[in-house]
Amino acid sequence: MKDFSKELTFKTSRSSGAGGQNVNKVETSVTVLWKVDESEFFNDDQKNLIHTKLKNRINAEGFLFLTVSESRTQLMNKTKAIEKILEIVDKALVIPKKRLATKPSKSQKQKRLDTKKKLSEKKENRKFKF
């Protein structure tokens, strides 16, 4: 995991929810912004991967943004925002393994046919015969 927290910019705003008397006075909600294209920590391929996987979080100007207002303090929200954005970018950079198509073995096929035959016989025995 690369720590690109030096490239992040922060905006604060009043957050809704719990806060008591401070809720209408103190700006505790933190929005973290990161300009993906101007990053020095990632190469062009990684930036393209981030753009494709996180396109719904990146705005028209190319900023990846995330808002956190879980805590009552600005400092806690700022640290949580940094953790979350690092985690989101780290997950976006993971390339999943390609699935290799496999065929069932002969014994698996035979076992499936045997269970089908047993079930069929069981149901056949349930029928009322004259």
Rank of each mutant, 00 (worst) to 15 (best):
M1Q: 04
M1E: 03
M1A: 14
M1V: 13
M1W: 00
K2P: 10
S5A: 12
K6H: 03
K6C: 06
L8K: 09
F10M: 01
T12Q: 04
S13C: 13
R14S: 07
S15M: 00
S16V: 11
G17D: 07
A18E: 04
A18L: 00
G19N: 07
G19I: 03
G19L: 02
Q21Y: 00
V23C: 06
N24D: 09
N24V: 07
N24W: 01
K25F: 02
K25N: 14
T28R: 15
T28V: 00
S29V: 06
V30A: 11
W34E: 12
W34L: 14
V36R: 11
V36E: 01
D37Y: 00
E38L: 08
S39Q: 04
E40L: 15
F41Q: 13
F42L: 07
N43C: 11
D45T: 14
D45G: 10
D45W: 08
Q46H: 00
N48F: 07
I50A: 04
H51V: 10
H51D: 01
H51E: 15
L54I: 09
L54R: 04
K55T: 06
N56P: 10
R57N: 09
R57C: 09
R57L: 15
I58Y: 09
I58K: 10
N59A: 06
A60F: 11
A60R: 08
E61R: 13
E61V: 03
E61H: 12
G62T: 12
F63T: 02
L64P: 09
F65R: 13
F65V: 06
L66H: 08
L66S: 12
S69V: 06
E70G: 00
E70W: 07
S71K: 15
R72L: 08
R72K: 11
K78I: 02
K78Y: 03
T79F: 05
I82C: 01
E83H: 10
K84I: 01
K84R: 13
L86I: 10
L86F: 02
K91T: 06
L93Q: 04
L93I: 08
L93H: 03
L93K: 08
V94D: 00
I95P: 01
P96Q: 03
P96A: 05
P96K: 01
K97R: 07
K97M: 02
K98Q: 14
L100A: 05
L100Q: 14
A101M: 13
A101T: 15
P104V: 01
S105E: 08
K106D: 09
K106P: 06
S107L: 08
Q108S: 15
K109E: 04
R112W: 01
D114C: 05
K116D: 10
K117P: 01
K118M: 12
K118N: 14
K118V: 12
L119A: 10
S120V: 03
E121I: 12
K122M: 12
K123Y: 06
K123N: 15
N125E: 15
R126Q: 15
R126A: 12
F130K: 13
